[in-house]
Simulated scan of single mutants.
Amino acid sequence: MWDNSPFSMPDGAKITGHQGDQYRVNVSMPFDADGFFGRQCPECSMVFRVNGDDYDALPDELRLWCVYCGHNADHSDFWTDQQRERAMEAARALGVQIVHQGFERIARRTRGTSRRGRVSISFRSSPRYPRPLPEIDEERLARTRTCAGCEVRYAVFGEHRFCPVCGRLPAAPVAFDALQAEMARLDALTSLPDEVRAVLREQGVFTRNWVDTIENVVGIVEALGAATFHERVTDAEDRVRGKGNIFQRLDDMADLFVSAGCPDLRIAVGESTWQRLTRTWAARHVFTHNDGVVDEKYLRRVPDSRTSVGQRLVLSDADCREALADTTALCRALVDISAQ
């Protein structure tokens, strides 16, 4: 702290030193009611929040990761717009006073020197009271997370793949977050007012949402299955070479794990759950590749189906919720394999 400063700074800003005409100013960035403060990615511009106490305990040379896009840079690059405006207001308060002081000096040097060829400057000063720094009023917390690696607490406002300190998250929390997001989307649609739901239903929004859910659960398992296999099996690359998108194919994926000495996923989740998963995966295939129209391949995979070739599958909210529950069980079985 620089004592005897000739400048008056607003609350939250302190001059901590100077060298020549260069001044060093510390500007506080207050935490919100939950003890978090904002960080904004300089690349994608999205905002996340970090627990203030956890952040203060981190090293000064810290580099941060954007939780959304994975941009990695010095932590000082992650100012939010409101934080930047707060700092600029402190800089303006100091700058005005430096200019004011400069005019006072000029006026003192030129006072009483009104001879020919010279200019007399008169300057009247008055006490200056800097404006208060703007408050930080950013979006409140929606979802908070604690990184299993560094234990830093942070909050996000969308789908994320990175810890702000550690970087890329393990596959398991990403998968379970995605499953929770799918369930939240189903809940959001069912909680809408009746008149809104009626309009959306007539426009096919509900049907499209259910199809998306069925397609997304397969992608979630594919990502987790691939990550688990490569982590658990030392010669994973050799075993999957030439097998295409094997982690999209339910039984082929299970056989792959068994061939590598891992537990059988079919036994881990139970026969009835596996049968329902098989039906979900078959439905995903016809929606992705045949606009939901049943073909011979679907009927071979789901022999107890009441549909015929050429019919279009019809999904429901209940189908999606069941698929999410079954997929969650499968993901837990994959995590168990990874933990062995």
Rank of each mutant, 00 (worst) to 15 (best):
D194I: 09
D295Q: 06
N216K: 02
K243S: 13
R201G: 11
L200H: 12
A226S: 15
A198C: 12
S272D: 13
V240L: 12
R241D: 15
V293Q: 07
W281Y: 15
F229P: 10
V205M: 09
E182S: 03
A184P: 00
D212T: 07
H285A: 11
I267W: 00
I220C: 07
V217P: 15
A282N: 06
D255E: 08
E195N: 13
N290Y: 12
D264N: 10
I267L: 02
A188E: 09
N290Q: 09
R208D: 04
E296S: 15
I246Q: 02
G219T: 00
A223H: 13
D235L: 12
G225K: 09
V269C: 07
I214Q: 05
L256F: 08
K243Q: 14
G292T: 06
A282E: 07
L256K: 04
R249F: 01
E237S: 15
F257Q: 02
N216V: 05
A227E: 14
D212W: 01
A188R: 08
Q180G: 10
D177C: 01
R241I: 04
L179D: 08
E182N: 00
E231Y: 14
R239M: 13
E237A: 15
L224F: 11
I220K: 13
V233K: 04
D194T: 12
W210L: 04
D295P: 08
E231S: 14
F257P: 07
T228G: 14
K243G: 11
G219Y: 03
L250R: 07
N290C: 10
N216T: 11
R201Q: 14
R239T: 10
V294G: 12
G219V: 00
Q248G: 01
G261F: 08
K243E: 14
K243V: 06
D295C: 12
G242K: 04
A260Q: 03
D194C: 04
F287K: 02
R232G: 11
A181R: 08
W281C: 06
I267H: 02
R276P: 08
E271G: 06
I214H: 01
I267D: 07
A254T: 04
D251W: 04
G292R: 04
G292Q: 04
G225L: 10
V286L: 06
R284A: 03
L186D: 10
H230A: 09
N209Q: 07
T213V: 15
L277D: 09
G219L: 00
E231H: 15
A178W: 06
A181K: 03
T288V: 14
F247D: 11
V294C: 10
H285T: 12
M183I: 11
S259W: 06
F287M: 02
L224N: 13
P263S: 07
A282I: 03
E215T: 04
F287S: 01
D177I: 08
P193D: 07
D177G: 14
V217T: 13
D187K: 11
I220V: 15
L179Y: 02
I246F: 08
